[in-house]
Every structure is written in structure tokens, then in C-alpha cells.
């Protein structure tokens, strides 16, 4: 028996979320007293693979077949299921990233397992196996018991701390049979905004809404985000109007995020917006209307005009950055 963790790479590098998910899986492995095995799919260098050991993975399977070099949920699910069988895994863990969400339910079906999707904390394994996950779009949590002998978990990014726990990672090649039927989807083009921080994984997020009046005013939002090392986000009407890309739209019909800091400028705080951001650890709201509903869901509030407050925050962020160096 073992705990298997699938770690995602981006262009051959592991992101912070990969170390977060290893730390999480390592904690489960310790809790149920089973060894931890990590699985990497695609082309990742030896130095990078060894990093898995820094967070507790003593064994790393490296599925680096040429056909797997491009992300493909169907094929990856087959590889993960094969690794789970080879390692006799009792728990299979991955990130609830876009890729993870497209993979985990397939793995659960292949293994006849129970699926706990978007879990936000360690499972309760004291007498059965109970996971906690978000429900009703951020308005509640559900505690769900996973009944099948094998459990597949996808974890919401940013819900577990990266815990260094150095062991030596023994890397071995893993080459399961590859089924051509898994390659029915062809990727014709990948468009990625380079240099930006991935919003679902971001620890700090600066977000703005209709109060910014128009796309030409986003320069100061981007400047503030850059200084803080934050990702940028927006409300739905802003992306609907084409002021910002849809990929930045957070909320009930956008993406749900749980950063350490969510700083919202000129956003009223409609219930559908809150649905996507209410699990942020600290929320700061800047709005010129003292009655804006968002203040009720905030930790810090500044009543004022964005065009006056944001420049002050930019200066403050510069000073803050300087004080940290």
C-alpha cells in the first residue's frame, strides 16, 4: 500500500503548487503510515526531479515517454492509474488545477475509486476517510466520506503549506503501455501570456472592477500587482466588456481562488463575485462608496477614490518592498 502523488510540471519545471501537493501527500502518507511515491509525467530534468525529495518523496516515478511530452488529460489519467496499480496506491493525490480537474475524475473511474474533488484540508482518517471541500460556490463546506477502498483526491491550490522535509529521492523510469485511443484530441496551438503569475496559484491577487471606469486605467492596477508580485484579476462585467481577458474573471461563473491576500479595487462585492474569492485569507477593499457590500466581507477597508488610493498603495508597496530587501 502507498500514497501516490502526481506532480505537474510547466515546461519541465515544477511550480510551487507541485511542492505544495507533495507536502500535502506526505502529510497524508504520514497520517496513514504508508510510503509516499511521486509521479512526474513529461520531460523533466534530473535536477528538477530530485527536488521532489526536498518535500518528502523518497521514490519518484518518471514517465517521460515522448508521446507524453504534451499535456493530455486522457493519456495522463491512464499513466496515473497504471502507476497507482503498480504501487498498490490506497490514496492518489493531485492538484485541482485545470489539468488536475480534467484528470482526477478519469483516474477515479479507472480505479473504481471514490473521488474527493477540490479538497481544502487533510482528510480525517481517524475512523473512516472524510474530506472537506467547498460547496455552494464558496458559501459552505461539505464533509464527505469516501467509501471505496481507493481514494482519489484533488486539492485546491493554496490550501496547504509547503513543508520542507528532505529525503533522497530515488528516481526510476516508469514506462506503462500507451494506448493510441488516448490521443484523440490534437493541440493545434497554445497561447500563454508569458511572465504573468498563474491566477489560481497566486498567493497575492490585485483585482479591479467597474469602478476603474475603463481599460485604459488598468496601468496602475498592473503596476501595484507587479510591485507586490501579485496576479491580476477582475469582476465579470469587466471581462464581459472586454476590458480584461476572461481568464482573469473570478467569481461564481469565473474561477474560484484562495490567495493569502485579495485586494479589490472598485468592486461592489456582489454575492456572485464573493463566491469566488471569499476563501481568501485576507481581503482588502478599496471603494468610494462606504455602503458597498464588499466591506462586510473584508478584513481591511479604505473608503476612497481608486484614482487617489491606488497611487498611495503603489508608493506603499515600493517602500514595503525596499524594507524587505
Amino acid at each position: 500500500m502507498s500514497v501516490l502523488v502526481y506532480i505537474e510540471n510547466a515546461d519541465g519545471k515544477f511550480r510551487k503548487s507541485a511542492f505544495e501537493i507533495i507536502s500535502y501527500a506526505a502529510a497524508i502518507a504520514q497520517q496513514i503510515n504508508k510510503p509516499l511515491v511521486a509521479l512526474s509525467i513529461g520531460k523533466v530534468g534530473a535536477d528538477e526531479l530530485a527536488k521532489a525529495g526536498q518535500y518528502g518523496a523518497a521514490k519518484v516515478l518518471n514517465a517521460d515517454a515522448d508521446q507524453l511530452s504534451k499535456s493530455n488529460p486522457q493519456a495522463y489519467a491512464s499513466v496515473i492509474a497504471a502507476a497507482a496499480k503498480a504501487e498498490n496506491a490506497e490514496v492518489v493525490v493531485m492538484s485541482a488545477s485545470y489539468n488536475g480537474k480534467s484528470v482526477a475524475p478519469r483516474v477515479a473511474v479507472k480505479l473504481d475509486a471514490s473521488l474527493g474533488e477540490n479538497v481544502i484540508s487533510l482528510p480525517d482518517t481517524s475512523s473512516s476517510f472524510i474530506v472537506k471541500k467547498g460547496a455552494y460556490s464558496g458559501k459552505a463546506y461539505a464533509m464527505v466520506e469516501l467509501l471505496a477502498p481507493v481514494k482519489v483526491l484533488s486539492m485546491m491550490p493554496n490550501s496547504f503549506k509547503v513543508v520542507p522535509n528532505a529525503v533522497t529521492a530515488a528516481v526510476s523510469s516508469f514506462q506503462p503501455a500507451i494506448d493510441s485511443k488516448d490521443f484523440a484530441v490534437t493541440v493545434k496551438e497554445t497561447v500563454r501570456a508569458s511572465g504573468t503569475i498563474s491566477l489560481p496559484e497566486a498567493e497575492l491577487v490585485v483585482s479591479a472592477g467597474r469602478g476603474m471606469k475603463g481599460p485604459e486605467n488598468w496601468g496602475m492596477i498592473e503596476e501595484l500587482a507587479n510591485l507586490l508580485g501579485a496576479a491580476t484579476a477582475c469582476s465579470k462585467p469587466v471581462s464581459d466588456a472586454g476590458w480584461r481577458p476572461h481568464s482573469e474573471h473570478v467569481g461564481q461563473t469565473g474561477i474560484a481562488i484562495s490567495p493569502n491576500l485579495y485586494l479589490a479595487v472598485g468592486i461592489s462585492g456582489a454575492i456572485q463575485h464573493l463566491a469566488g474569492v471569499s476563501s481568501s485569507k485576507v481581503i482588502v477593499v478599496v471603494n468610494k462608496d462606504p455602503e458597498a457590500p464588499f466591506f462586510k466581507a473584508a478584513d481591511y477597508g479604505i473608503v476612497g477614490d481608486a484614482f487617489e488610493v491606488v497611487p498611495k498603495l503603489i508608493e506603499a508597496a515600493k517602500a514595503f518592498k525596499a524594507s524587505q530587501n
Binding site: 473521488l115 459552505a140 463546506y141 461539505a142 464527505v144 467509501l147 481581503i283 473584508a298
Partner: peptide, 16 residues
Amino acid sequence: KTRLVSFDKPATRSAV
């Protein structure tokens, strides 16, 4: 495969 055990509401934030 699953059994709903219970629901819970997020802790309310302390006053702004």
C-alpha cells in the same frame, strides 16, 4: 462511492 457527512459554513470574518 461517497456519503455526505455534514455541511459547515465558513467562519465569519472579524469586523472590517
